[in-house]
Simulated assay, not measured.
Amino acid sequence: MASRGQETKELILANTEALVLERGFAGTSIDEILKLTGLTKGAFFYHFKSKAALARALVERYWQQDYAMLEEFSRRADELSEDPLQSMLIFLKLFEEFIEGLEEPPAGCVFASYVYEFYQFDDGIKQFIADGFKQWGKMYQQRIEKIAAKYPPKIAIDAGELAETLMCIIEGGFILSKSLCDTSLTARTVRQFRRHLQLVFEP
């Protein structure tokens, strides 16, 4: 069970994330966070010594939650099939179903929001974001390499570039789905990537 302090910290982070995805980090003030959470400045600064400390905690929280979700999809996919191609297709299908189950388009990606405002952040946060993207890419690349080892591709491919393509599809899908108010857009683009893998690798 979370302590009261942990609950307060999570309240601040959850509400700050919503504000950042809506108006950016620079456009989010501590006063707005306090108004949204109903907390005092004393309560806020007890948990975060500065807005910079909040920025770091927010990006770490986003990474932990997002990577945990992808690891869960990966675990479930591997349980359902030991075949590397089928496991990857299931993994992508699970992600599609998650997106399609949302009532509203994804609010966006905290990493992307920070990248748009890189001038706001120190080198530590910039490196954390870069390392996070690399870790996501590594997960996808390792899966694609296992597929290629078992199923010779019908066209020349680069596992790293395919992994980058998938990340671009997901990140770009978030932007477009929010702009066009289309909840299923990201799922559709991931579905096209899944079909591309089938065309490239299926015997």
Rank of each mutant, 00 (worst) to 15 (best):
F133P: 01
I144N: 00
E161S: 12
Q141S: 11
E164T: 11
I157G: 01
F128I: 10
P152L: 05
K146A: 15
C181P: 00
D182Y: 14
F128N: 10
D158C: 09
I147D: 01
I170A: 10
Y151R: 03
L176T: 09
I129V: 15
T183Y: 03
A148W: 07
F133T: 07
A156I: 10
D158G: 05
D182E: 10
A159C: 09
D158T: 09
L176D: 07
G173K: 04
I155S: 00
G173M: 05
S177F: 07
L162H: 00
E161T: 08
Q135R: 15
L180E: 00
G132R: 11
T165P: 04
G137T: 12
I170W: 07
A148C: 05
M167K: 12
I144C: 01
K150N: 01
I175C: 08
S179E: 12
I169G: 07
K138I: 06
I147F: 03
R143F: 04
K178Q: 08
K150Q: 10
I170M: 13
Y151L: 00
G172Y: 14
P153E: 03
A163H: 12
G172E: 12
Y151A: 02
G137M: 12
S184T: 10
I175E: 08
L166N: 05
C168D: 07
L176C: 03
K134T: 05
P152W: 04
D131N: 15
